[in-house]
Amino acid sequence: MKKTTSPEEERSPSHGHDTSAAAQRVRLLERLRLGPVDTITARRELNIMAPAPRVKELREAGYPIHTHLIRLNDDQGRPHRRVAQYYLGTVQQLSQE
């Protein structure tokens, strides 16, 4: 059964229908607080087609986001050797990089 959303939820920045950069940053930050997220997942689950610019903007805003490159298969099973995986660190970790 498909979950219905209220008009208020659809206007919420965290709802996937809002494709503004600000809404994408909100969704990405909320997801990063739960754990690491990779580029493929950000595209599929968060409706963020280009997560790297959103990560850059969040870093510029002071969030300590780190990147690891991982190997990952996409939804069609195709292997990708360099997929960015982002995670929140600490401010101290950011200053050491």
Rank of each mutant, 00 (worst) to 15 (best):
L46F: 03
E45P: 04
H80S: 02
K56T: 15
Q76M: 13
G16V: 10
S95R: 15
P79N: 03
T39H: 01
R81Y: 07
R81L: 09
Q92N: 12
R43G: 09
I40M: 10
L69T: 14
T90C: 08
R27P: 05
P13H: 06
A22F: 09
R44D: 12
R71N: 12
T39D: 00
P53F: 01
I48G: 06
E10V: 14
R31D: 05
L29N: 03
L72N: 08
A42E: 03
H17P: 00
I48E: 04
G62L: 05
G89E: 00
R25A: 05
G62T: 08
R82T: 10
E30D: 12
L28I: 00
S12L: 09
L69E: 15
L46W: 04
L94E: 07
V55K: 01
V55N: 08
Q76K: 15
Q76F: 14
E97S: 11
E97Q: 14
K2F: 10
L32V: 09
E8H: 05
E60H: 11
L94R: 09
P79R: 10
R43C: 09
R78I: 14
A42W: 06
Y87H: 12
R54I: 06
A61E: 15
L29Y: 01
Y86K: 03
H15G: 08
R78D: 13
L72F: 07
E97V: 09
V83K: 04
R54C: 02
T4F: 15
Y63L: 05
Q85E: 15
Y86L: 04
G16Y: 05
P13W: 06
S6R: 08
A22I: 03
H66M: 12
Q93L: 05
P79D: 02
I65N: 03
A42K: 08
E60Y: 08
S14V: 12
L58Q: 04
D75N: 14
P79V: 02
H17E: 15
V37T: 01
E60F: 07
P79M: 03
K2H: 13
H17S: 15
L32N: 00
E45K: 10
E57S: 11
P7V: 04
Q96D: 13
G89T: 02
H17I: 13
A50F: 13
L94S: 01
E97R: 11
P51Y: 04
P13N: 09
E60I: 04
V83S: 04
Q85I: 07
R25D: 03
